[in-house]
Design a protein around this nucleic acid. Sequence first.
RNA 1: GGCUCGGUGGCAGAGUGGUAAUGCAGCGGAUUGCAAAUCCGUCAACGCCGGUUCGAUUCCGACCCGAGCCUCCA
Length: 458
Amino acid sequence: MAELRLTNTLTREKEIFEPRDPERITLYVCGPTVYNLAHIGNARPVVVFDMLYRVLRALYPQVIYARNITDIDDKIIAAARDRKEGIEAVTQEFTEKYREDMAQLNTLPPDLEPRATDNIDPMQSLITQLIERGHAYAADGHVLFDVTSMSSYGALSGRNLDDMLAGARVEVASYKRSPGDFVLWKPSSQDEPGWQSPWGWGRPGWHLECSAMIRAHLGDAIDIHGGGRDLIFPHHENERAQSCCGYGGDFVRYWLHNAYVDMDGEKMSKSLGNVRTVRELLGLYAGEVLRFALLSTHYRSPLNFSGELLDNAKTALNSFYQALRNSADIEAEHIRPEDTAAFTALLDDLNTPKAIAALHSSCKALNKADAKMAATFKGELLAMGRMMGLLGNDPEQWFTDSASSSGPTAEDIEHRLAARLEARARKDFAAADAVRDELQAQGIELEDGPEGTTWRRL
RNA sequence: GGCUCGGUGGCAGAGUGGUAAUGCAGCGGAUUGCAAAUCCGUCAACGCCGGUUCGAUUCCGACCCGAGCCUCCA
């Protein structure tokens, strides 16, 4: 079988992927905290790990992909307070919107989507276990993980406790034994959401849910755990500490992390006011354009998001769909995605730019091919597109649907094209060109081909 | 301060111990009534300085520059 290679954050090396059980692959990706709309940076890991999910499904009979919904968190509590609603109203609204937005990016839904609030019991038993094993302690209404109790704490993020102490720049809460200790359970006031526990009315710490839910839904240990680079520390480091110390074992074999999305060369942040939500961008560009843009850089490199990036993505997709449109009457040969150059590229640590190059190569071959070879190249192009979650739209629709509601209707355009056709037949090119210029001004581009005139929205 | 990652043509972006993918843009041509789309051709790059080597963009070291993380931010 073809070998999949992945860069493991834990070892900092590209390794051959060897599953625990080839019959059952387990993948867990950190999902959203549902208190606002997902921005384009939130979408990157979703698209990247969707790509991985698709590759894994092509290689193995069963892949279980879990992505959590964090529906209890201080930011959620704050948002609910602002809106004078319960947290359920907030989390339900943004969970739904998140699912809708991610579906627009043509990402497959995960097999499991566990919610933190449905898993309070497993979290509490994990805390109990950690306390019993001497890795956690209760203090001042909190339960804290004792980082000094784990010799390999810091292994994932490549730090040690001394470094962290040296770099500490935040005042340490008085109830912590050592500054690196982190919260497993925190007290809630009476008007805050909470649950009864052996340590009083309270709520779980952030890292806890992933450890508990992985155990509850996937098992003691999983193959791959993914997320954004920023999660390496503290989130994944702490998750690893909780699971390794609470349950024993390796917990995760391969840790994968994607780099950030920057906006026009700057970090995306609320204070800079350059946060772009997926929903907002979907009003301007097709979801497939956003997906393509997110895949155009290797996942471990920073991606600079800009209008130019999106325009390039759109241009590239246009050329693919153009080739498909031009070969509409040719029946594509059936080709297995696993047999394509794009798949080979993806096996090498998800080399999506290289896979895209393969797309271009087949597209060009299709454009040049005679009728017989065209079937093969078209099949190739479509197979690779299928593999990558691209090119699934109808080519005709791709060019004639509009992302916005402005612009002339299809009927209107066809009507004017008929008039232009007549003018051309009369060799009245001035009149014909006038129609074309007028449509061009309204964002419609015409193409006169041997079999008539086609049009597309720009 | 500690830790981590990166610097490839005008732009985007792969990759390699030995002629440096691909796309966009540019230029020339074919095609077209003119365009568009497509095709053909073409220009152009490995931050800096040492080291290892027959040979370094690729490995090692220093330097310069940029990015990220350092307790709840994807």
